[in-house]
Amino acid sequence: MAETISVEVARYSPERDTEPSSQRYDVPLHKDWVVLDALNYIKDKMDGSLTFRWSCRMGICGSCGMMVNGEPKLTCATFLSDYAGDGSPVRVQPLRYFPVIRDLVVEITDFMNKLQSVKPWLIRGDEKAVSEGEYLQTPEQLDRYKQFSMCINCLLCYAACPVYGLDPVFIGPAAIALAQRYNMDSRDEGAGERMDVLAQHEGIWGCTFVGECTKVCPKHVDPAGAIQQYKLTATIERFKSFLMPWAAGNSEMESAK
């Protein structure tokens, strides 16, 4: 008999329960098993009703984010053996601050709307004809936004952000980081449009720089940095539009590229 480890999983069925409870399962402890392997083992062999999201198992799809022992984690990249030592069970719960639909599945429409509101795509004043060829970019220009482009929308940063927990109208770390990903892209001309959404209280100004979003990000995107940097940009823009109303626009962000 292989060594086992206890996994304590949050269960919630809206058809049956008024609040979540937890259920304990003993699963084999293999050295190369991640928390997601344990959940799949439970679903396959022990209890097919356990409900959770997952897809790629390789840290790309961003769907298996959960709270593991109280910390937001990608369960496909969190090894069971790291929690084995002390004999206490591994606690797996749905991502914090989101409404729970069932067991470990959370409602993310709110984020989807916010993401769309920052227009995370290349915006051009004039689009080139296909025959004119590609929009070229130097490695240096790529380097300015590359970090922010690594986001996989896993929402760990939202589960780490108390500001989002306290006030769900806050647009949140990933959406702002992704807005910056396009603002900093030399091919993009949409910084002014995005500023309308970002420079509100629900945008960047709600952030108090707790910095946890950056610490939990599995892709090293640094949303906290993106927000602070954008605060500086928005402030410069604000003073500029005050001192030189005729020159207001996205000149600051364009020159930042």
Partner: peptide, 16 residues
């Protein structure tokens, strides 16, 4: 854009 998402806080009896 952002204000629309206030719907998030609407009452949904089945979500915990």
């Amino acid at each position: 854009g952002v204000r629309q998402t206030v719907r998030y806080t609407e009452y949904h009896p089945r979500w915990y």
